[in-house]
């Protein structure tokens, strides 16, 4: 566990050193800020003291940004060979991947903390359902966690960052959009399975303030599956 933390801290430092973290924070806050407050169907058009608008914008923004955060993590280590340095220390593949996972999820937590002023502003405008806000943030964290898992898996498949980004994007888009479309087009078993895999429905129910074990299991198993496959892929590359 100590090693996981050492790796995570190092990863975070590198993200901030290379400006990557700042660029992503600016993009995330800029994008979600504009569409929450200034443009489109913003909060003032809704006219309700609720962060629903922000949550649905952040839901899309994070989906787009997370592959950019994960693309480098394993691919770059394999391209430069530094993975060999790591794994000949008393460090396992799991510890490397968990460290990287932890660093990215912490960055997301940081990004979400920076949106707390949105919450404070809305709360001062009217009566906010505090439970729903907390659940909304949790939902965003859960979905990020799942996409980080997928992103790390994609990153472990290739030495090329761009391919890794596109792969992560391609896999994520199934959960984000395509399963939903399939689910609504087809009936029967196929449709039901697709709906079950669709992230939208799970996110919606959490963001509305209902935390169901079904949804938690969904996000946890996606995260775990991503990390597990990443570990297998990494272990097979060095065998």
């Amino acid at each position: 566990m100590k090693l996981v933390w050492i790796i995570a801290r190092q990863e975070l430092r590198m993200q901030f050193d290379s400006l990557m973290a700042y660029i992503l924070l600016v993009l995330f806050l800029g994008f979600s800020g504009i569409f929450t407050w200034l443009y489109g169907s913003d909060i003032f058009i809704y006219g309700q003291a609720s962060l629903q608008v922000f949550f649905s914008i952040a839901y899309i923004t994070l989906f787009l940004l997370i592959p950019a955060l994960t693309m480098k993590s394993v691919a770059e280590e394999m391209r430069t060979g530094t993975i060999e340095m790591l794994l000949t220390k008393p460090v396992s593949c799991w510890q490397v991947l968990l460290g990287k996972y932890l660093s990215i999820i912490l960055l997301i937590v940081f990004a979400l903390l920076l949106t707390l002023p949105y919450y404070i502003s809305v709360a001062s405008l009217g009566n906010v359902d505090h439970g729903a806000v907390i659940c909304g943030y949790l939902g965003l964290l859960f979905m990020s966690s799942a996409y980080i898992g997928i992103g790390l898996f994609a990153s472990s498949l290739t030495n090329n960052q761009i391919i890794s980004f596109l792969l992560a994007f391609a896999i994520s888009i199934f959960f984000h959009i395509i399963f939903g479309i399939i689910g609504h087009q087809f009936g029967g078993i196929v449709g039901q399975m697709a709906i079950g895999l669709d992230m939208d429905s799970h996110f919606e129910s959490i963001a509305r303030g209902v935390i169901d074990t079904k949804d938690i299991i969904y996000f946890a198993s996606l995260t775990f599956a991503g990390l597990f496959l990443a570990e297998r892929s990494l272990a097979s590359k060095i065998a």
């Binding site: 100590k2 090693l3 050492i6 790796i7 190092q10 590198m14 050193d17 290379s18 430069t80 060979g81 530094t82 060999e84 340095m85 790591l86 000949t88 220390k89 008393p90 460090v91």
Partner: peptide, 26 residues
Amino acid sequence: YLPEHNPLYSDMYVVDYLRYMAQLQL
């Protein structure tokens, strides 16, 4: 262990790199 081609994190400072490696060795 010094691997062939000596892979290093090129963005890191020498001292920081050595510290990271020392930490990984617990």
